[in-house]
Amino acid sequence: MSSTKSLPVTVKDTNEGITNVLPFKDIVPFHLTLTKHNLKLVRNKTQTLQINLGFLCNQTCHHCHLNAGPGRKENMDLGTVNAVVSYAERGGFETIDITGGAPELNPHLPNLVEKISPYAKRIMLRSNLSALNERLKNLADLLKSQGVVIVASFPSLNLAQTDSQRGEGIFQESIEVLKKLNDIGYGPNGSGLELNLVSNPTGAFLPPSQEQIEKRFHQILENKWGIRFNNLYNFANVPLGRFRQWLLKSRNFEKYMKKLFSNFNPCAVEGLMCRTLVSVSWDGYLYDCDFNLAGGLFMGGRKIHVCDMNGPPEPGAYIVTANHCYTCTAGSGFT
């Protein structure tokens, strides 16, 4: 157990306008933990522009920090897409990271990919696979011609675990789509088209070591289904949105928060993604990361629209933190 002095802490549910205050007598606020370790969380050179195209999704995953789903109306419009493309041109980012919701459900996705590709070396599309399935025929040529990296959600090698997190039938559909992606040239086959997987725990527990689980995913996916991929990234679930609701409902919230807190690793702070990434939401406002977007915490604590930015955020700029930041500093960190 940590020897940190206990302070009474309350957490306010900011991301859904629900005031849900819970006492956590053993959890120190994140910014005080940084201070205790003589750490400051400020920006380095911003290399990645993450674009959240909206909260509309065909799935309602239990671990979603954005509470994305079929009923959500927030979707980036063409005007904002154009403003984001223009920002990418001004910003000189190395990587564009397109996410959602399910970005495939935004009708402006092809337009965005085509227009933004000249402004960054690496374009990534985060996909839940099921949304890509029926749209792959239409999107395949564009994704391949622009060398778009596909980052696919694939939480577990087990059907029951996957379906319990993402919905019935999702595991089998994901396997089918991964095979299709291999068939059109995605994966480590010399084509240069990168296919990466993202695995999130299917409950209130931390993820395994990335190195060990990646090896196992490679072995089992190839042996059982002949599927090949490039890299696997392992992320802890962030206690916001629907995942937070599930934690509360299942009475796992306090224990999970304590687990994140007690696994704080000061060495993880240096490599946190918020130091090199800026996230733009569906309505064009900027956040230090997608989790702060979910929590309604604007970049640097100020509501700034992408049109009002001349370039990337300055190195040394302050990064807004809250207790959900313990997710990214647990264990080896979330970079």
Binding site: L157, P201, T202, F205, L206, S209, Q212
Partner: peptide
């Protein structure tokens, strides 16, 4: 039980 889940095992 927690360790097994955190090391990547599943219930089956």
């Amino acid at each position: 039980t927690q360790a097994c889940l955190e090391k990547g095992s599943h219930l089956a």
